[in-house]
Amino acid sequence: MNAPLPPTPPTGLRARKKAQTRRTIQDQALKLFLSQGYENTTVEEIAAAAGVSHMTFFRHFPTKEAVVETDDYDPMIVQLIQERPPDEDPLTALRRALAQGLEAVYATDREALLVRTRLVLRTPALRARVWENQYATEQLFAQALSVRQPGADPLRTRVLAAATLAALTTALTVWVESDGTEDLPTLVDQALQALHG
């Protein structure tokens, strides 16, 4: 397996500063959500904790929900899917791309991923948006598979992308239920292998 690829770092001083501000806002938001609850935390409190203005918050995140939902994982996974060998079957390509991407995320953002996933699963306002977010990710994964294998049956491609996301979501749910004591990469691999059975 190739070395994991972290999300591509932004180039240029302005882009790096923007990415750092965004990361600071997310970090401070997660701390506040943990200490006082998602519903009890305001955008103003998040902005103040991050040392930015209310308007700066909204330049980076259109809503409070977006602070939890937004990450750079999908583009990284799409790139990894597209880079899989063209002769690899789609499910194997998805499984290996996700394993490689998850290895990078787990090594650098494990705690933030656990907190964010727990918030999504336990907060009704966030849980209600899961389908919309998964639909967007499903489309990205299906497009990446189509790039690898032009002319593949579009319905089959979408079903494979949707099934993969369902397996991934189940693994994340089990991981949160274990309070992060289980190894997420192992859970994801087991869930995705179940699709081959």
Rank of each mutant, 00 (worst) to 15 (best):
A142R: 05
A48L: 04
M1A: 12
R95A: 09
A166S: 07
V78L: 04
Q26F: 10
V43H: 06
G51Q: 06
V43M: 09
A47P: 09
D89P: 15
T170Y: 01
K64I: 00
R129I: 06
K17I: 06
A50G: 13
D71V: 02
T181P: 09
L94C: 12
V159E: 04
Q134E: 04
E69V: 08
D27N: 15
T173P: 00
P9A: 05
L160M: 10
V147L: 09
R127A: 11
L30R: 05
D72K: 05
T173E: 01
A142E: 02
Y135T: 11
A107C: 11
T181A: 12
A191I: 01
P185E: 12
R122Q: 14
D74R: 02
A112L: 14
V67D: 07
L121H: 01
A163N: 12
A66Q: 03
P6G: 08
L32C: 07
V67K: 07
R118D: 11
S178V: 04
A194M: 06
A144F: 08
G180M: 09
D183Y: 15
L195I: 01
F58Y: 15
A107R: 13
A66K: 01
L160Y: 10
D189E: 15
E65I: 11
L187G: 08
L91N: 10
Q134R: 02
N2E: 11
L145S: 04
Q79E: 10
A66E: 07
Q149P: 02
P4I: 02
E44V: 11
M1K: 12
A107G: 11
Q82K: 15
Q28T: 04
T164E: 01
A125H: 14
T11M: 05
L102C: 07
A47C: 08
R95K: 12
E88D: 10
V147A: 10
K64E: 00
T108I: 15
P150L: 05
A49P: 11
N40A: 12
R96H: 14
S53V: 03
V115C: 13
R14Q: 08
L30P: 01
M76P: 02
A163M: 07
A191Y: 05
L192E: 08
V130K: 03
R118A: 06
T164F: 08
L195V: 06
M1F: 03
